[in-house]
Design a protein around this nucleic acid. Structure first.
Ligand SMILES: [Mn+2]
Ligand SMILES: [Mn+2]
Ligand SMILES: [Zn+2]
Ligand SMILES: [Zn+2]
Lengths: 163, 163
DNA sequence: GGCTGATCTAGACTCACTCCAAGGTTGGGG
DNA sequence: CCCCAACCTTGGAGTGAGTCTAGATCAGCC
């Protein structure tokens, strides 16, 4: 898997005129490993994996890859930016107001969805960004103390959530 | 107008258990005067109007009014928060990638719109936030140097845009 | 194995807030 | 008209999430 994946990733980077570096591969792995991580999450994961990487390199890489369209950046209100490698399908997001959990939602409309506003006022629209806000099943069931701290678990990678 | 509006606003504030102060009225006026202003815009406008107001008071007021549902806060990627008094109709926004101009878009679906995600995964959705990204007619026509600096005009209130 | 531009690093810096503290002012119920 | 909780002010410190810069290092081509 890792050999294979790495080869693919190499090609991906080179195709976009980017050098292949340990840092970039680590960032890319951290993102594809789990969607919607923050720059800080990615920094931590990548650092754990390759030992040394600066947060600056993470920011640079994320910006470069986002600019190239290899990654997608999501910036929900009240949260640092999150990244994913599921690009080009204009899917949407559903975020729990209580615990900040974020999940993917396929577009209700289709492939090139919701790109048609009721009245575009002459604007040339290229993206319809949709964020659904609400409460996840767990938080609806019982807003236990755990729920409140959940958004911090992203950092701890939600390892032992179900203990 | 101002007498009338002020009376209405008084009632609005009191109904929510808030005292009526010169600062709050000025903030409210700055917001209703032009939608989608930033806290800093509002600070400047209010200060020009009533002479003295601290930015702290602006932040406090905006937070209080947003919490009460009197104002709505919009936080688009790459921009400080913006405020409007058009609440409760779940309308959407259309933002120009080039000049940051932001306009309202009525919901394509209806009154309680787009609240139905394709698959809500058991979430209890209460809001569908939609931001359309693209380029405004002016920026499409010709990305003149003016366009680039346009987002700064918000600060200058776009007074002399069409000179 | 060298060269050179692309990349990485540490550290300073910015922006948009947020959160005090301490004292001064004011709205509005009685 | 009085009072006091609610509100505002100055001033300052602190924070999260980045951006910017300058010098060190490395990828990839010869
Ligand atoms: Mn996603
Ligand atoms: Mn609006
Ligand atoms: Zn939740
Ligand atoms: Zn524009």
């Amino acid at each position: 898997m890792s050999r294979e994946a790495s080869a693919e990733t190499d090609v991906l980077l080179r195709r976009h005129g980017l050098q292949v570096t340990a840092q970039r591969l680590a960032v890319l792995r951290a993102v594809s490993d789990r969607a919607h991580r923050t720059a800080d999450d990615i920094y931590r994961v990548a650092r754990a994996e390759i030992g040394a990487i600066s947060s600056q390199a993470v920011y640079n890489t994320l910006t470069a890859l986002t600019d190239k369209g290899i990654l997608r950046r999501i910036q929900p209100a009240g949260s640092p930016a999150r990244y994913e490698d599921r690009v080009g399908d204009n899917h949407h997001h559903l975020i729990c107001r209580t615990c900040r959990r974020m999940i993917d939602v396929d577009c209700a409309v289709g492939d090139t969805p919701c790109l048609t506003a009721a009245d575009d006022s002459g604007y040339e629209i290229d993206e319809a960004e949709v964020i659904y806000w609400g409460r996840c099943p767990e938080c609806v069931a019982g807003p236990r103390s755990r729920a409140v701290t959940h958004h911090k678990e992203t950092a701890r990678e939600e390892k032992d959530r179900r203990v």
